[in-house]
Design a protein around this nucleic acid. Structure first.
Lengths: 253, 253
DNA sequence: CGGTGTCTTGAATACCATCAAGTCTTGTGG
DNA sequence: CCACAAGACTTGATGGTATTCAAGACACCG
């Protein structure tokens, strides 16, 4: 069932990019700035931005299950996915990670994960340590608020996914996935305000692994969406041509 | 699809039971004792046990979506389920709540939920307030540890459910649900050590709503489990007759 | 005693998976 | 830069798993 070859692990390189700050700063959590114990809102010189970023090429594994030793990664640029592998090679994607995302808030409290993280596009990320983040949690009330808000959002997304997988049709699942991604990207200013166009680097097998279908069936559903003029997909870019109709499909039942 | 009549809301009565302490104290989180700011490990007189418990009869709603005002409920006795309702009347159960369970750790950080809680058996529960729990979180390091542990478990269960719904067959899902419940009950000392027998108040429609199937199909799968001698179910009680074989079914692929 | 809730079983159907073949794109090494 | 391999997507045919529909048995309760 839906088996794909396993990508090899990546060895983290350590270069430094120019536009990291802008990308990272867009996100609510703002770990890159807020995690510093000495952080104050007006300050712009948080110590974390000076720390080097790791870069992983597309389709490589960022880290495996239980491979994390005390490191908490935050995505600075690019798309990734956290994935549970099954013993027959099939996979379930728990969540897509966008710029600014903590891999999971659970990592603040344990250093092991039962899922692996794989880069979808080239990914640039930074890591923090348990100890420094946990310290911030206690000494920086603003950071505590942001973490609990991040947890609430993570929980809401997991709950929604459970409902989708348990009680919705293939069309509904796919439509809801795309709408959810669009909303998250919009909050980051990554959707064209007028055309509603957005970068969409996901392969169809990513969609399949996220919504519990096969790539073949995803292809058929997407083709139907395009044929009916609701979506436009081309060249790793996606446009929701008829938002109202698309939302109707997604919210059905 | 799998529509059932909506139970009416319950008006909380306020009696006091005798064996609440023993039941509540079994759980890891131990909110009933640990939430008190003045709590110390040897102490046995936490103020929360003096607070009255609410009782809800089986099949009634404990509280609805967004009906919670600053109250954080903890189950003291009985089984409940947190449920997402869809507009066509179908339902998805996010989790079963057992004695000692917080409805969700998310309630520590927000007072609204997108799901409702329904009693499966008669349920006895107590409520705490945001403010007192949040205060304990900061002033009682032991409580903070327990909450983060509870949350890690909650997250692990959600992740597992996603994998089950997305990538496993009906038989696997049902077997894994039963095994998961058995493990949780065992930790509470609610499974007969020898016979592996346990109380099992779930109706088949509960199982169906938890694993994303129809009650009809659940009936067929369970009948097959019984016919092959793996399970014994009778009179709201369940025994895993062949644990090894059952685990093999559950962990398949 | 009817009413409701629960469970079972069989038949027909729907949805999605699997299998397979083919096109097109992307990436890589000679 | 081209040739070849691998990955990505499409489409049709076929099959399996789970749903839907329906009818009946059984228990419990007011």
């Amino acid at each position: 069932m839906n088996v794909r070859p396993r990508p090899v692990a990546a060895e983290p390189v350590i270069p430094e990019g120019p536009s990291v700050r802008a990308t990272c700063a867009t996100y609510d959590l703002c770990v890159c700035r807020a995690a510093s114990p000495a952080w104050t809102p007006p300050s712009d010189t948080a110590f974390d931005l000076q720390r080097p970023a790791h870069v992983v090429p597309a389709r490589r594994i960022v880290f495996r299950e239980n491979e994390l030793n005390d490191a908490v990664p935050v995505i600075c640029e690019g798309w990734a996915a956290s994935i549970v592998m099954l013993s027959d090679g099939s996979r379930q994607i728990l969540s897509f990670l966008l710029p600014g995302d903590l891999v999971s808030t659970a990592l603040l409290f344990q250093s092991q994960t039962h899922c692996l993280v794989e880069a979808i596009t080239e990914v640039r990320y930074r890591t923090f340590t348990h100890s420094e983040l946990k310290a911030s949690l206690f000494h920086n009330p603003g950071f505590f608020e942001k973490v609990s808000k991040a947890w609430l959002e993570e929980k809401a997304r997991l709950d929604q996914l459970i409902v989708d997988l348990g009680r919705r049709t293939a069309e509904e699942r796919i439509a809801r996935l795309i709408l959810g991604l669009q909303q998250r990207l919009a909050r980051r200013g990554m959707v064209q305000p007028e055309s509603m166009e957005m970068d969409f680097p996901l392969r169809q097998h990513h969609i399949a692994d996220a919504v519990g279908l096969t790539p073949v069936h995803v292809s058929k559903v997407l083709s139907e969406f395009r044929r009916s003029g609701i979506l436009k997909i081309s060249d790793r870019s996606l446009t929701i041509v008829e938002p109202a109709g698309f939302r109707r499909i997604a919210h059905m039942r």
